[in-house]
Nucleic acid binder design. Structure first.
Lengths: 342, 342
DNA sequence: GAGAAGAATAGAAACGTTTCCAAATTAATC
DNA sequence: GATTAATTTGGAAACGTTTCTATTCTTCTC
């Protein structure tokens, strides 16, 4: 077996072999309709026989792009992010783009470093879910961003496209459902005020009580972080109080893992002892002894939309104003909720 | 707020402003010890005031590299791959590399396309878990690969570095454990012969019976795919046979999801009706009403090792022979196995 | 078949770096 | 202070493409 070796063929080699100029070879590749059929076939033959493939680095250099987009999130092990990545990737790849995946571990410094790096000739655009909408370092960078980008599920008062979820409506609906089942002591565990999902979910939750003319159980609102640990800690605490909640909304797929861990550890049975509602489809939510009732959202559509917004800016160099698209949620009934016993 | 606009500063601008030549600016950046302190500070000041950052595209072009590595797998929603990605990424990023994530959906054509793309100036190396060790298209490309790469958990008779897992030992141990608990009708569901984990797991499984002088339950070996669907289908079938297995090894984290779905649907109780062993840590395995006994492996170490093998080839241009590193597994006891009732 | 218009091609410049070689400067030696 | 050696610097070439301008070749029209 002959090992392929030596330099790869360049456009000059192709020109030499086919007896035309480099310009013509280039046009044969990028605008074949402008070169005569005879010439074209000579060029194509040379390309074939040399196994020529254009060098992306040189193309990037000359075209001033990279056909690369950064996808920045806190943790790719979060199944929602993974699904979203796949949706964005599918859409972008089909247009020739590749994605850098950057998992920042939730650290603001890594986030800032990622944006810096991507901006300086490594990517043509960014799709990101930043960690904290108030972080000064990140904000500063977003403000001076020189490549187009799309925020996923984050809301910042800057001219940046965003794809959002109607979390408030989702939570209102879920809470309403529980109230309808007779629950009053309903707990919610979710992200903090520093990101939109946290704010909106709590807002929807509160509104549901208010619309029903019921007092809001302020003591049962635990809004701070989306982490497994936070879910575990708060669920544990809530389950140990005197006046235990009869229902709980684990609003965040990582939170759910923590909550289930706590539930298991405390020997609480679902839905016998506690009604439970989760957010977002995940193996765990669909499987935990019986599927959990959950607030779903269309992750593929969300990802695809993000990709499309970005592509609009990358290809049609339309300088349109920033756009915000919001997707509705759907309550999917599982077996984790019961009417409250009288 | 003044919008950053106009062309980004180039090394020529820096040279002009600081009154030195472009060569000196370049050396100030890449080999500061070769330029006099006075000159260096003039250059640095110019860089500062212009906000200059070298253009990656031009660097890539000139240096003939990309500081990019491709990470190719079938599905990033598989939590094991996600963890592995993070480990590889952490190691590579610290050396300045970024990772393209390519999730091929298990399609050989996408896999081949990914390798093609990465080779031609888009990446300096590849870390991959191919889908089928016998696929002609993929093999062909690997044979002619012009950039270094590392295989994860795959075994191909080519000169390519690989990081493996001692699946056979793991399975032998797990099977032994079940045999020790009195089980004889033990089922295994895992990948097919076309990938190493499938072969090795079955081998370990078989060996355990043989070493114990017991007949191998050939009818309970279901070795074909790692997918959720396969797990579901086979588990369903196995649970419906007359002579039901008393224990089952779901050897693959996606398989486990399918198996649990089947178990749930059939109303089988774990470990009462069936002892269950899983492979690889995952939310589901750790959580399913009580943690499942599982065959664990050190994903961080595996990822880190893969990255290091690749870095050795990328940085020290050592032309050493291909290396294969294998990591052991550990049986972690959960609550999903019981001695068989007499 | 001459002339003009249009289409196709050649060839050089440009993209922003790094690197190489030669020239210039500094330091060291006597 | 002259000579040599060592260090630092300037400037051009090179990386492989795309794109622009100018030239050549076709085709058409009368």
């Amino acid at each position: 077996m002959k090992k392929i070796t030596g330099k790869a063929a360049t456009i000059r080699d192709v020109a030499r072999v086919s007896g035309v100029s480099v310009g013509t070879v280039s046009r044969s590749l990028n605008a074949p309709e402008t070169v005569r059929p005879g010439t074209l076939s000579k060029v194509r033959q040379a390309i074939q026989s040399l196994g020529f493939q254009p060098d992306f680095r040189a193309q990037n250099m000359r075209r001033r792009n990279t056909m690369t987009v950064g996808f920045v999130i806190d943790d790719i092990a979060n199944p929602w992010h993974a699904s979203c990545f796949k949706a964005v990737d599918a859409e972008m790849r089909q247009r020739g783009y590749s994605l850098y995946l950057i998992s920042t571990n939730g650290r603001a410094s890594e986030e800032a470093a990622a944006i810096d790096m991507l901006q300086h000739g490594r990517a043509d655009g960014i799709v990101m879910t930043i960690n904290n909408e108030q972080d000064a370092r990140t904000i500063k960078r977003l403000k001076e961003l020189r490549i187009p980008s799309v925020l996923l599920d984050r809301d910042i008062p800057l001219e940046i496209d965003a794809v959002l979820t109607e979390h408030a409506t989702g939570l209102r609906q879920a809470t309403n459902y529980l109230i309808g089942l007779g629950h009053r002591r309903i707990a919610i565990i979710t992200a903090g005020n520093d990101i939109r999902p946290g704010r909106e979910r709590v807002r929807g939750f509160v509104e549901a009580f208010e619309k029903n003319g019921l007092p809001v159980p302020e003591d049962l609102i635990r809004s701070q972080s989306l982490s497994v640990d936070f879910g575990f800690r708060e669920a544990t605490a809530l389950l140990q109080t005197q006046n235990r909640p009869t229902a709980m909304i684990a609003a965040g797929n990582r939170i759910l893992v923590g909550v289930l861990r706590a539930i298991q550890q405390q020997g609480v049975s679902i839905p016998g002892d506690l009604s439970l509602i989760a957010c977002d489809r995940s193996d765990v939510a669909l499987l935990y002894p019986g599927p959990i009732t959950l607030i779903d959202r269309p992750v593929e559509e969300i990802g695809r939309t993000a990709a499309q917004l970005l592509l609009e800016r990358l290809e049609g160099q339309s300088e349109r104003p920033a756009q915000r698209v919001a997707f509705p949620t759907h309550l999917i009934l599982g077996g984790s909720c019961l009417p409250i016993a009288r």
